[in-house]
């Protein structure tokens, strides 16, 4: 004789960390020029991020790629240029500075912004709080089911947890 229930705990709170993904996309007929331009422009973007207060350890290269561009309308599809793409993810700990940091990076030459997202640096307390709510929710459901079936709850047999 047993009863199995699911409980859910939700804790909503303001994020304390922002992440922005941005970089430079450069096209040029000459690969060397495209590569050098991208490197210079990205160095300026990185300098702007640092000047805006982003720590070195909070800047991580996300992608670096070079694509050949061809003219597909020509029979032999000749190479018409190169596309160099370089991007980083920057972690911003002062949320109020997110917009100005982004603007500073764009001013410095970032011409590709692929995302802004948010997170919690230390979700431990929120998780603990959500866990308490989830267990209380499960307990209340189980007590209801027991009462409705003229039974009483005994000890817990198994318990498992999911998190998102």
């Amino acid at each position: 004789r047993s009863v199995t229930v699911n409980g859910e705990g939700r804790v909503s709170l303001p994020p304390d960390t922002a992440y922005i993904a941005l970089g430079v996309d450069i096209r040029d007929p000459d690969l060397g020029v495209a590569q050098r331009t991208a490197a210079e422009q990205m160095d300026a973007v990185l300098a702007a991020l640092r000047a805006a207060g982003v720590a070195e350890k909070d800047i991580q290269t996300g992608a670096y790629s070079i694509y050949v561009e061809r003219d597909y309308n020509q029979p032999n599809q000749p190479i018409i240029g190169y596309h160099v793409s370089h991007s980083v993810t920057a972690k911003i700990r002062d949320l109020n500075a997110t917009g100005s940091t982004l603007a500073a990076a764009i001013d410095a030459g970032a011409n590709n912004v692929s995302g802004v997202w948010f997170g919690l640096e230390n979700p431990g307390d929120a998780i603990a709080q959500a866990r308490e709510l989830a267990v209380a929710d499960a307990r209340a459901k189980a007590e209801d089911l027991a009462r409705l079936s003229d039974s009483t709850l005994g000890p817990v047999l198994t318990i498992s947890e999911g998190y998102s």
């Binding site: 699911n6 709170l13 948010f118 499960a138 709850l153 947890e161």
Partner: peptide
């Protein structure tokens, strides 16, 4: 640009099996 952080949500689920007396 103006960036709105909105809210973050932590969702935790448990599955509990009780004995029934």
């Amino acid at each position: 640009p103006t960036i709105n952080p909105g809210s973050a949500e932590v969702v935790l689920t448990v599955t509990v099996k009780y004995t029934l007396n």
